[in-house]
């Protein structure tokens, strides 16, 4: 076995063309994910996390333009592939839990049948009884087996979310992208599912990209974490290091404001200023208008990469603790 990454993304750029101009949703992003590793992606609402996910699966709307970069999945670049060539990779090798739970279930078919169909279309599990597999998957995501025969509208929000997690796991992919997969789950069910997913990850050496706003879940689930701001990665590194000693001022802001259920009830703070307009992002470092440490350089010139062990950040004035 080599230690080649499962997924290597290099200088990826994906923009949306709109009447008002070009939205730079993914603007030069590079990272890689090792076999069996979990990468967390965090960042402000609208910074481009789902856009990265949809680009990796090449499930893009008509107004999207994959401008540059490469996406190597097991060494094969997905970018030049046609839709036909892409199909064998999707779900079998790279699968996804969509942020839009409802949109990914067909309202007119029973949920169990939809999963059976997915299994049969991608016959990595051929020979096994598909219905038996559906039962296994339902158990894994804490869904009562009686719901196999029900329609999506009979599910609660969190039940739908669990059904699409089951669907994404069905074909045992090499890498799964989970986009806010547990927003509609209570913490007990969430805990159960995350543990089950970690077990599968270890036994199958499955990799994962976990997109979430919940810094606590990322801390529990992810080996490495990438922090995004305005279409770019601004910090990346082992989760323990990034949480203990964040380099980028934006990362520090994310870490400091976390509300807790226990202990003293501290005042909640918001980042000053407004989220960046991706139609016309600020020059230099996009975070500069909201950054307490911003200097003239930050306003004019793209920031350099600062390294500290396996951790890096793009910043002119990195924290030096």
């Amino acid at each position: 076995m080599t230690t080649d990454p499962v997924l290597a993304v290099d200088d990826l750029k994906m923009h949306y063309v709109t009447q008002a101009g070009v939205v730079r949703a993914v603007d030069g992003v590079s990272f890689s994910v090792e076999r069996g590793q979990s990468l967390g992606l965090v960042g402000e609402s609208g910074c481009g996390k789902s856009s990265i996910a949809m680009t990796l699966l090449k499930l893009l709307p008509d107004n999207a333009r994959l401008v540059a970069g490469s996406i190597a999945l097991n060494g094969i670049d997905l970018v030049p592939l046609s839709e036909d060539e892409m199909r064998p990779h999707r779900w079998d090798r790279i699968s996804m839990v969509f942020q839009a739970a409802m949109n990914s279930l067909d309202p007119v078919y029973r949920v169990g049948d939809q999963i059976v169909e997915a299994l049969e279309a991608h016959s990595s599990s051929a020979g096994r009884d598909a219905m038996e597999r559906v039962r296994e998957l339902f158990d894994l995501v804490s869904l009562d087996p009686s719901y196999i025969l029900r329609y999506p509208h009979e599910y609660s929000g969190g039940m739908r979310q669990r059904a699409i997690i089951a669907m994404a796991l069905a074909c045992e992919p090499d890498i799964i992208i989970a986009d806010e997969p547990t927003t509609a789950l209570d913490v007990i069910v969430q805990d159960h599912i995350l543990r089950e997913m970690q077990t599968i990850q270890h036994s199958l050496e499955m990799s994962m990209i976990y997109i979430s706003h919940d810094m606590a879940v990322i801390a529990e689930v992810c080996d490495v974490v990438g922090v995004m701001y305005a279409g770019k990665l601004v910090e990346f590194g082992p989760t323990a290091d990034v949480y203990a000693r964040p380099i980028h001022p934006y990362t520090r802001a994310l870490m400091s404001a976390f509300p807790s259920v226990r202990g003293e009830k501290h005042e909640l703070v918001t980042l000053p200023g407004e989220p960046p307009n991706l139609l016309d992002p600020p020059g230099g470092c996009a975070f500069n208008p909201r950054c307490a440490y911003a200097t003239d350089e930050c306003r004019t010139t793209a920031p350099p990469i600062v390294k500290r062990g396996d951790q890096w950040a793009a910043c002119w004035n990195p924290s030096d603790e």
Binding site: V42, E44, S45, T183, A184, H213, M215, A257, P259, T270
Partner: peptide, 14 residues
């Protein structure tokens, strides 16, 4: 009904 489940801390706080 779960109005801020997809928002980051800062926007959620706002």
């Amino acid at each position: 009904d779960e109005p801020t489940s997809m928002l980051d801390i800062s926007i959620r706080t706002g």
